[in-house]
Design a protein around this nucleic acid. Structure first.
Length: 572
DNA sequence: GCCGTTTTCGGCCCGACTGTTTTCAGTCG
């Protein structure tokens, strides 16, 4: 796909133009076009063939010509020129928090600074404080920002950010006079990674709340602190913002700060088409300037003639249109989940015994759980040879007699070997209630081999679920080369479910592919892949991902009651 | 640079916060 490359070039042009101090709206125009191109489902080649580039939102004559130039020649001359004329390293300076295009340009002109290292040296030698509108404090702040920039990890995985946020919420809840304490931003939308943690609240004494916030234990640095908002750093690199807002505007504020930006832009268009201008404070009737306030988000959406939209799908991927037509899906919820179909025990590489895991699953209110320890091919994880699996089956039968109102399913996470063969013979797989088949080896195969290998596994009548289908680990390892579109087509054909692995470092399938699976009529299983009792609580992350993929209860097999599930699994 | 049943020109979100000023420019979200 050339779309991604074009989007990258356009975004880079936005950055370069910003450094030159170009008109800010022009900068935004390039970035908007980049986002548009990135989220398109059609190839740019095809759009160009239809002569339809200008139909892309945010793409006009000038940018269309540049896209066309790229498709013909493989480059964009004006991009190359901008790139040539900008000293390398300058764009990096924009990443230093507190530095914008104006300051970066000035630093370059007056001090010849064009890299972070040069800026650091200049600040240490007190050359920065002699510049206009600079002083000892800004110099110190620049040095601190550079330190933080050096330690930065890109985006924060949901599995890291959410526990941090919940801890802070827990402490803030105790502050006197605080109300409507709520997460906002990408964390509320359940994105797999977040940039920072946004918290909103209302209070009759905002300053007291802010004071309590910046003094929370765990706060390592206060970036800024005013009467109604503050930003702090916790856990070395995680920025947490707290805003105290007016009670009467809480609905519009929470909507605004939940985003996404694209969703908000679309929502403002809807408002305008109905004669309103939407801001974070109110909905204003354009005709007479009459302001309407909303303390509840639900009322705002309703007033605009649409259903309330769950935060997880606010990405301008059709949710606004669906809400206007009152056709929003009823997204799956944690409380719909009846059991976990992919759990490990100390029989392979899990930490806890079957009994421990059952106890925890019952505590979570589940009806069933499938123990899917590794198969013998995965020796590093103490995979089970056939005789051990058979022995375990007998033990499970005994355990099932002991527990009441709960069923333990015999399962396996069987290796899909490099040649596409499964790691157990059919007669063994046939004795399992649940067979999850996964790839843990030969990650470097070419796309054709990897895709074929997974599809071959799905052809087996015994395979019920493909575990973590893309193999990616967030911030750690890219997905292996696999054509997921073909895999999903095969899943639809063979009636194999895809896993949404709920482990926060996996979330695999991810939100986009989960939605695609649903479109193709593929069922999904949201599993924790827990290797310990506390791992079972990751279900919440998997459900968030499923919700982001527009999944409903009926799309997810482990929302079925035990009898229905067994009927589904054994239907073949 | 984009966009338009209020506009083909003049809009494009704007308020909070900071550090420097002595009234405000720059950054951020």
């Amino acid at each position: 796909m050339k779309n991604e490359e074009v989007a990258r070039l356009l975004r880079e042009m936005g950055d370069l133009l910003e450094l030159r101090g170009e008109n800010g709206f022009k900068v935004v125009a390039y970035r908007r076009a980049a986002r548009s191109v990135e989220s398109m489902k059609t190839d740019l080649d095809e759009v160009t063939r239809r002569g339809d580039l200008e139909s892309i939102p945010g793409v006009g004559k000038a940018i269309a010509a540049k896209i066309d130039e790229y498709l013909r020649t493989g480059k964009i001359e004006s991009h190359e020129r901008l790139f040539r004329e900008t000293p390398p390293g300058m764009a990096e300076l924009l990443q230093i928090s507190g530095l914008g295009p104006k300051t970066v340009s000035m630093l370059h002109q007056k001090l010849g600074v064009s890299t972070v290292a040069e800026l650091e040296a200049a600040a240490r030698e007190h050359r920065v404080r002699r510049l206009p509108r600079m002083g000892p404090t800004s110099e110190k702040n620049i040095l601190r920002s550079i330190e933080r920039w050096k330690k930065r990890s890109d985006r924060i995985p949901l599995g890291v950010a959410l526990p941090i946020a919940q801890k802070i919420l827990g402490s803030l809840k105790k502050v006197a006079g605080i109300e409507n304490l709520t997460l906002a931003g990408s964390l509320r939308r359940g994105r797999e990674t977040v940039g920072d943690v946004d918290i909103l609240a209302t209070s009759s004494s905002p300053e007291a709340v802010i004071r309590a916030f910046v003094e929370l234990s765990g706060v390592e640095e206060v970036l800024m602190k005013g009467p109604t908002k503050a930003s702090v750093i916790v856990d070395e690199t995680v920025q947490v913002d707290l805003r105290i807002v007016d009670h009467r505007s809480f609905g519009t504020v929470i909507q605004y700060f939940t985003g996404s930006k694209e969703h908000n832009v679309k929502l403002r268009h809807v408002a305008l088409s109905k004669g309103y201008s939407l801001s974070e404070y109110s909905l204003t009737r354009v005709a007479d300037g009459e302001e309407i306030f909303f303390d509840r988000e639900e009322d705002l959406y309703r007033h605009l003639g649409m259903e309330w939209i769950p935060p997880e799908i606010r990405e301008d991927q059709g949710e606004v249109e669906a809400a206007l037509a009152r056709r929003l899906p009823r997204l799956v919820e944690v409380s719909d989940i009846k059991g976990d179909l992919h759990v490990h025990t100390d029989w392979s590489d899990g930490l806890h015994t079957m009994e421990d895991m059952v106890y925890e699953a019952q505590r979570l209110g589940y009806e069933y759980m499938a123990f899917c320890d590794h198969s013998h091919g995965l020796a590093i994880a103490n995979g089970l040879a056939i005789d051990r699996l058979v022995e375990k089956m007998d033990l499970i039968a005994g355990l099932n007699d002991e527990v009441e109102g709960f069923s333990i399913l015999v399962g396996t996470e069987v290796e899909i070997r490099a040649d596409g063969k499964l790691d157990y013979p059919d007669e063994i797989l046939g004795r399992c209630d649940v067979v999850v088949a996964s790839v843990h080896s030969g990650y470097n195969q070419r796309e054709r081999e990897m895709t074929g290998r997974i599809i071959e596994a799905m052809e087996s009548e015994h395979v019920d679920v493909i575990g973590h289908p893309s193999g990616r680990k967030i911030g750690e390892r890219e997905a292996y080369e696999v054509d997921l579109e073909r895999v999903l087509e095969a899943a639809a054909r063979t009636g194999t479910a895809m896993e949404i692995n709920a482990h926060p470092s996996r979330l695999d399938l991810n939100d986009r592919w989960s939605r695609r699976a649903k479109e193709l009529g593929v069922k999904l299983a949201i599993n924790t892949d827990a290797h310990s009792t506390c791992g079972l609580s990751a279900m919440e992350y998997g459900v968030k991902t499923a919700r982001r993929g527009w999944l409903e209860k009926g799309d997810v097999i482990n929302t079925l009651g035990l009898q229905d599930l067994l009927r589904y699994l054994h239907r073949g």
